[in-house]
């Protein structure tokens, strides 16, 4: 079956979208986090088919959790709990009921004003989770490691960066990588007590922000970062001074990247220019282990567009097997079905 794109307007700009995993069936539920509206919220939705028409599924809102400020990131800490960062500096852990998705989200932990400029509010720009731990970053340049089980701050790296941090990713249990507004990438060893990065390198020469970082699901030494200019950089952390590849990809900033959970050779990216692309990463990641890459192989990238280009930014995507969810600035969510991976 061909790829099927279906959009629904939801009257809020969507900044983050996540499928809610189910145990044995294909999930129908997802989270959205909105931004840039008078009142922003984290909502739970469910796809419901209209009457007898089985093909068309319309999302219906199940519950709403209002937040003060933009929702900047949503990540799962386990199957039913999410960690969400908010632009007023809060980090929240929320739990969705397994049995009845309609019940309001339950607050597990809240770290109020975790990021702040003293009395002034400071945006918590992103977070990443790994086995119940949360690493949050903010415009204040601090990195906080939170323990999701106990609900406390287990480590804080104050002044990790002199300007604002915009992306973060766990590499190992004790290592996080952060990217700032000028494209500086720093690796932090959580156990070390000095506020010194274990390694630091540059994303690109243009000094634009690193907007998102992911690591390869099966080869954890491979790190990818998306830039505000739309470039995509790949590092092999075993030789991390310079990116092994720097690809000028999208026309404007990359907003989110995800490796397909079932097929690690597929990468899906979304961008401010309204594009959603699908990359075949075989050449980039496999060959990176060897010392030299044949030039013709390196330039041969397999990139497809998955959706007609939108006129507004696509802020987020999340895929689950053959279905990809996208959230965009035109106040719509898109469901792409029959994606071949």
């Amino acid at each position: 079956m061909p790829l099927n794109v279906q959009g629904t307007f939801v009257s809020q700009k969507i900044n983050k979208i996540r499928w809610i995993p189910e145990e044995y069936v294909e999930t129908k539920n997802f989270f959205t986090g909105s931004w840039d509206d008078d009142v922003n919220s984290i909502k739970v939705w469910s796809f419901e088919s209209l009457n007898e028409d089985q093909d068309v599924e319309i999302p219906r809102q199940l519950s709403e959790y209002k937040v003060e400020g933009d929702v900047t990131q949503i990540k799962f800490t386990d199957k039913k709990t999410i960690a969400a960062s908010v632009s007023n500096g809060d980090v929240k852990m929320l739990e969705v009921s397994v049995y009845d998705k309609q019940t309001p989200l339950r607050e597990v932990h809240t770290w109020k004003k975790l990021h702040n400029f003293g009395a002034e509010t400071c945006s918590c720009t992103s977070l990443d989770t790994l086995e119940g731990d949360i690493a949050s970053i903010g415009e204040d340049g601090n990195v906080n490691i939170l323990n999701g089980r106990r609900g406390d701050v287990s480590q804080a790296i104050k002044g990790a960066d002199s300007c604002s941090l915009h992306s973060v990713c766990f590499i190992k249990l004790n290592e996080v990588i952060t990217g700032n507004i000028r494209g500086h990438m720093k690796i932090w060893d959580i156990r070390s007590s000095t506020n010194k990065p274990a390694a630091a390198f540059l994303l690109a020469g243009d000094e634009l922000a690193a907007t998102c970082i992911v690591h390869h699901p099966t080869q954890p030494h491979i790190i990818l970062a998306g830039s505000e200019s739309g470039a995509l950089a790949v590092w092999d952390l075993r030789m991390n001074q310079f990116p092994t590849s720097l690809l000028n990809a999208h026309a404007a900033g990359i907003t989110e990247m995800q490796f397909h959970p079932e097929n690690p050779n597929k990468l899906i990216t979304s961008s401010v220019s309204g594009e959603v692309w699908d990359w075949s990463m075989e050449t980039l990641t496999k060959k990176a282990q060897e010392d030299c890459v044949p030039l013709e192989d390196k330039t041969a990238m397999n990139v497809n567009t998955l959706m007609p280009v939108l006129h507004k930014a696509v802020n987020t995507l999340h895929c689950d097997r053959g279905r990809i969810l996208c959230g965009a600035d035109n106040e719509a969510v898109y469901l792409l079905k029959n994606y071949k991976y």
Partner: peptide
């Protein structure tokens, strides 16, 4: 403009 995220977006739109 309250956050840098929005500032970046406004700048991107303006440049566009």
């Amino acid at each position: 403009i309250r956050t840098e995220g929005k500032a970046l977006r406004v700048v991107a739109e303006a440049k566009k």
